[in-house]
Nucleic acid binder design. Structure first.
Length: 267
DNA sequence: ATGGTGGCTACGCCA
């Protein structure tokens, strides 16, 4: 009995509903986690996703910016939205689902991008990002007794050298600065998480999930970063079968700058 | 080389 979970920063779910539907028809994951839906809850295309079998939908939308959603073939219970940094942004939603007798807490995150200047004294957005990561360190994979955990999302940090096209050239670029990468690795260690993408594809193999809109030819330049992540509690790692990064989605009509990443588990 | 592109919304902000 398999379980599949996709994370995808969709950069406006209303604009990109056609490619979301195409993806769901083709890959048909059990659960789809979206970030940057960029709409309010009542504007979310719930009917279209329900028509494809995703009858269980939970939302944390926001006008114009951010926003996260989970659409699932399985019932979702005990849903929760945490306001990290207390600023009112819609950047987190979670719920529990059941799979093979396990109860699993699924977290879906959209971590702040952090602006351009990696210095919190002159760029408050970078400070917000660092504060958000600091607050995430309190999130434990074993927070609920008897409940496993999976954490996905656009974490906007590429923690390892081969999570970016050029480690040296990106050391002062927001998303790959040491204070961010060390901070994210602390979140993993202190929370007792396992980085499933790096379990499946260890360093030094390059992994990217995002390619900038600003490149003239994203595919030829291939200057990507691994900004999207799938983590789990240690008990899930033995069930991981594979991770699929659908790179071709970056070349679809009106693409997101992020591609869908899907984890496949098996009993 | 310090631009470039994209989305929301209605203008500048955010990524």
């Amino acid at each position: 009995m398999s379980l599949s979970i996709t994370t995808w920063n969709i950069n406006s779910v209303r604009l990109r509903l056609p490619i979301v539907e195409d993806f769901l028809k083709r890959v048909s994951p059990d659960i789809l986690c979206l970030q940057e839906i960029k709409c309010q809850n009542d504007q979310f295309p719930a009917d279209a996703l329900k028509a494809l079998g995703y009858e269980n939908i939970i939302l944390h939308g926001q006008k114009g910016y951010h926003g996260v959603a989970i659409a699932s073939r399985f019932p979702l219970t005990e849903d929760h939205r945490q306001d990290y940094c207390g600023v009112g942004d819609s950047r987190h939603i979670s719920a529990i689902f059941e799979w093979q007798g396990k109860r699993i807490r699924l977290h879906n995150f959209y971590v702040p991008a952090g602006g351009d200047e990696p210095d919190r004294t002159i760029n408050p957005k970078f400070g917000h990002k660092l504060d958000f990561i600091e607050e995430m360190k309190a999130l434990k994979a074993d927070a609920e007794p008897g409940v496993s955990a999976i954490l996905v999302g656009d974490l906007n940090i590429a923690p390892f050298e081969n999570d970016v096209w050029s480690h040296k050239q990106l050391l002062k670029i927001v998303s790959h600065t040491p204070v961010e990468t060390e901070g994210l690795l602390d979140v993993v260690r202190q929370g007792g998480w396992v980085d499933l993408m790096r379990q499946f594809t260890p360093e030094p193999e390059k992994i990217y999930t995002w390619w900038s809109y600003r490149a003239k030819d994203w595919e030829a330049a291939d200057r990507g970063r691994r900004l999207d992540h799938i983590w789990s509690s240690p008990d899930m790692t033995g069930h991981l079968k594979r991770i699929d990064i659908l790179k071709e989605a970056r070349g679809w009509e009106k693409p997101s700058d992020h591609v869908p990443v899907t984890a496949w588990f098996d009993i």
